[in-house]
Amino acid sequence: MKTLITRRRALMSGIAMAGTIAAPGILQAQSVPATHRRNTSSFVTQNWQDHFDTLGVATIVADTESRALHYWSGDGQDYRVYPTSVPISEELTKRGYTKIVRKKVGPDWTPTASMMERFPEYRYMPPGPENPLGTHAMYLSWPAYIIHGTHDTRKIGRASSDGCIGLYNEMIAQLFLISPVGTQVRII
Rank of each mutant, 00 (worst) to 15 (best):
M1N: 07
M1L: 05
K2V: 15
R7C: 01
R8E: 13
L11W: 02
M12V: 12
S13E: 09
G14T: 13
I15K: 08
I15R: 03
A16Q: 01
A18V: 15
A22D: 02
A23T: 14
P24V: 11
P24H: 03
G25I: 14
G25E: 10
I26R: 02
L27S: 06
L27C: 07
Q28D: 15
A29N: 09
Q30H: 10
Q30Y: 09
P33V: 13
A34W: 11
T35W: 12
T35P: 02
T35F: 12
H36K: 15
H36S: 08
S41Q: 08
V44E: 07
T45L: 15
Q46L: 07
W48D: 02
H51N: 08
T54D: 15
L55A: 06
G56I: 10
A58Q: 12
A58V: 03
A58K: 03
A62E: 03
E65P: 00
S66E: 05
S66A: 15
R67D: 04
A68H: 10
H70S: 05
S73T: 09
G74N: 08
D78F: 00
P83I: 01
T84D: 03
V86D: 01
V86T: 13
L92I: 02
R95N: 05
T98K: 03
I100W: 09
K104Y: 05
K104M: 10
G106I: 10
G106F: 09
W109Q: 06
T110K: 13
A113K: 13
R118A: 13
R118D: 14
E121Q: 15
Y124E: 08
M125G: 01
M125H: 05
P126L: 08
P129S: 08
N131M: 04
P132G: 08
P132T: 12
A137Y: 11
Y139W: 10
S141L: 09
W142C: 08
W142T: 04
W142P: 09
Y145Q: 09
H148P: 06
D152A: 11
T153G: 06
R154Y: 02
R158V: 00
A159N: 14
S161R: 05
G163C: 11
G166M: 13
I172Y: 01
A173V: 00
Q174F: 00
L175I: 00
F176I: 06
S179N: 00
V181C: 04
V181S: 05
G182K: 04
Q184I: 07
Q184F: 11
R186H: 13
